[in-house]
């Protein structure tokens, strides 16, 4: 599905992964997470095989509506983030885990919803809970799969503001369809469509947006359009 992919996520990077459905965005995420293995080539996460340092990667799933009726509170979902059967991290006590979870939830403005059941929350609130869960291990990289799919426009802007704050400490890789909002916030863009085209920040200028807007007929396949329509120098881009 994906071939000739070669790129690096630097520390504190903020990279958007865009591309058409079936282009391989999810595959790319799964590769980084170590859920599937590449046929050829190598993936290194902090110098090791993916999956080995899984607590170093925080993952926020696309579907925040899973198991809405499940009897579990926000706090317990966040505490799930401490799961570490491989004992990769030093043990901390239950109280410390709880304190850490409360602190993170507070940072995400969710202090008032700690003991609410996950099903009683709105999509946006639930998403914050999932982000809090992924932050429990102090990851170096945060992976988010289509995070704004279930949030309204106002919520989306807030959401990217939140990501920007988080980006001070952690690299973020976000899969998205919405280039308009992504382009205002991220540092780099990776267009994934069978292959991967990396655009560093300099390429994310008016040129690129114009190409995108003028091709609104092919809206469904924006990434493909951009990848094709980019000037040559931008396409090869500066690889980090």
């Amino acid at each position: 599905m994906l071939s000739d992919v070669n790129f690096t996520i630097r520390e504190k990077d903020f990279i958007a992964v865009i591309g058409p459905n079936g282009g391989g965005k999810s595959t790319l995420l799964k590769l980084v997470l170590g859920l599937i293995k590449p046929d050829r080539g190598k993936i290194r996460v902090m110098g090791g095989a993916p999956g080995k340092f899984s607590p170093a990667i925080g993952y926020v799933p696309q579907n925040v509506h899973i198991n809405e009726k499940f009897p579990i509170t926000a706090l317990d979902v966040v505490l799930m983030g401490c799961l570490d059967p491989g004992r990769n991290r030093p043990r901390i006590s239950k109280e410390q885990e709880r304190e850490a979870a409360m602190e993170i939830l507070d940072r995400l403005n969710m202090a008032g919803h700690v003991h609410k059941r996950i099903g009683e929350m709105s999509g946006g609130q639930r998403q914050r809970v999932f982000i809090a869960r992924s932050l429990m291990t102090h990851p170096r990289l945060l992976l988010l799969d289509e995070p704004t799919a279930s949030i309204d426009t106002k919520g989306q802007t807030d959401f990217y503001k939140l990501l920007k704050t988080l980006n001070r400490d952690v690299a973020i890789m976000v899969v998205s369809h919405d280039l308009v909002i992504v382009s205002q916030h991220v540092k780099n863009v990776a267009c994934v469509n069978k292959g991967l085209h990396y655009h560093s920040h300099e390429a994310l200028t008016g040129d690129m947006l114009e190409t995108m807007y003028s091709c609104s007929v092919e809206d469904v396949c924006r990434a493909h359009v951009i990848a094709r329509g980019m000037p040559k120098n931008a396409r090869t881009g500066k690889e980090a």
Binding site: L35, S54, I57, P61, F70, D76, M80, P85
Partner: peptide, 20 residues
């Protein structure tokens, strides 16, 4: 309990975290 809870609630996440 923790493992069973994680697998029951969010299998994908449990898998990523290395829960068997």
């Amino acid at each position: 309990y923790k493992e069973i809870l994680a697998v029951s609630y969010d299998e994908e996440f449990a898998r990523i975290r290395g829960v068997p």
